[in-house]
Design a protein around this nucleic acid. Structure first.
Lengths: 227, 227
DNA sequence: ACCTGAACACCGTTCAAGT
DNA sequence: ACCTGAACACCGTTCAAGT
């Protein structure tokens, strides 16, 4: 008896390009979708492409996934599994920074991931694990629970937005580079302050600005405790 | 001679529902698109719908607009024309808050506007006007130019994200309400800190949190001046 | 229970042809 | 210069039918 179920055989026999066709499953679908998201961006991740990658038709996915929206949420949480929350650095600032840098670097693994994180309120198990860890670090920094709850929201919002800004491109051009060109073209008469600030508006590497912003947020949070 | 150009007549004669069909123009297209965006959200704003609203075919729009991406950027800037930057309140904090509240309320005029602002780096004339004003307010608050440049970025990022979070819905359900349900279901053993913070994580009206976050940002900025 | 093909109601964009 | 119809290469989702 090679298999108890006659249909099972298909999973073994079905091939594409000589490789065995893996059985469909929620996990397989989410994995394939994440790969496509990293490669083709948020708009490029379609149910039809995911289905094609798994050697099946788009309708088959609906057995495992309710809608594209649900798939997007699953993909986001799957990606967040790679966030390293284990930093044991002594200083709580360094710990916070290490965890957030891991989060940002995960979101920057491809175009679309950060955009997905911005347009979806993350609430899967890996998002919860990250939130739990950030709450813990703020607790060690003697931030009360009520303040920490709002602070985590603010910090994650910022980190996500940074990652999105950094990976954003429109029409294949780097979006920040386009902004830079607009700023350079501003007239001193119409927008004197932008003109005066045109250097710092464009300057600073991603991580420089990230570090500064983290100090701003942390400083502001510590001095605005609600508890 | 009723008209110098025989084709001109079409604009006068062409009607739909008894109303005169307005001539196509960049402005008309952007205006129609903004209306649809406010009603149907970002994904609902399609070139084909805009064309239909203007009683023409989708291909006609390409005479005035390069792509959907360009149209989106134009629509965002058109919406930002409604931002009131004229506050003359005495306290610079109150001034900053008034301008940002106007910005957020504009983005909350419908679903999709805030989402659009998050996914597009705003660089049109109305975005520049807003940035100019914020730089001015920070200057009055004695923030140096270099710090102000980064600070405006941070503040706008936050305000935009708040508006997006607040107007976001997935599958017709309020997205924040969904999150609230997830938090309520969290186990005290697996995620003790989230469990402990479940009240404040959900609590606070939009404007309460907005006010707090603004104090955090401003406090942090004032104590982290780079100049 | 799982998978499929066909169909429906949409998309953005291009291109050749018209006025 | 402006506008159009037809066509191309895509979408998400549903439904009836298959194993």
């Amino acid at each position: 008896m090679p298999s108890r179920n006659p249909f099972e055989a298909r999973n073994v026999v079905g091939r594409r390009g000589g490789r065995v066709k893996p059985p469909l499953s929620r996990d397989a679908i989410v994995g394939a979708a994440l790969e496509i998201l990293k490669r083709d961006g948020l708009e490029g991740m379609s149910l039809r492409k995911v289905a094609a990658a798994l050697d099946t038709g788009p309708t088959s996915l609906y057995v495992y996934v309710e809608s594209l929206d649900e798939l997007r949420a699953l993909v986001l949480d799957r990606a967040l599994a790679d966030v390293d929350t284990s930093s044991r650095k002594r200083d709580f600032r360094a710990r916070l920074r290490a965890v957030l840098e891991s989060y940002v670097s995960v979101l920057m693994q491809g175009p679309g991931l950060a955009q997905l994180a911005l347009s979806t309120i993350a609430a899967g198990p890996n998002a919860l694990r990250l939130i739990e860890r950030l709450l813990g670090i703020l607790h060690e920094a003697e931030v009360d629970t009520a303040t920490a709850a709002w602070a985590v929201d603010l910090i994650l919002l910022y980190a996500t937005a940074i990652a999105a800004e950094q990976t954003q491109r429109s029409d294949g051009r780097d979006a920040l580079a386009s902004l830079s060109r607009v700023i350079d073209a501003v007239s001193a008469e119409e927008f004197p302050r932008i003109f005066a600030a045109r250097e710092p508006l464009r300057s600073g590497s991603g991580s420089e600005r990230f570090g500064w912003a983290l100090e701003v947020l942390l400083g502001g949070i510590l001095q605005n405790r609600r508890g």
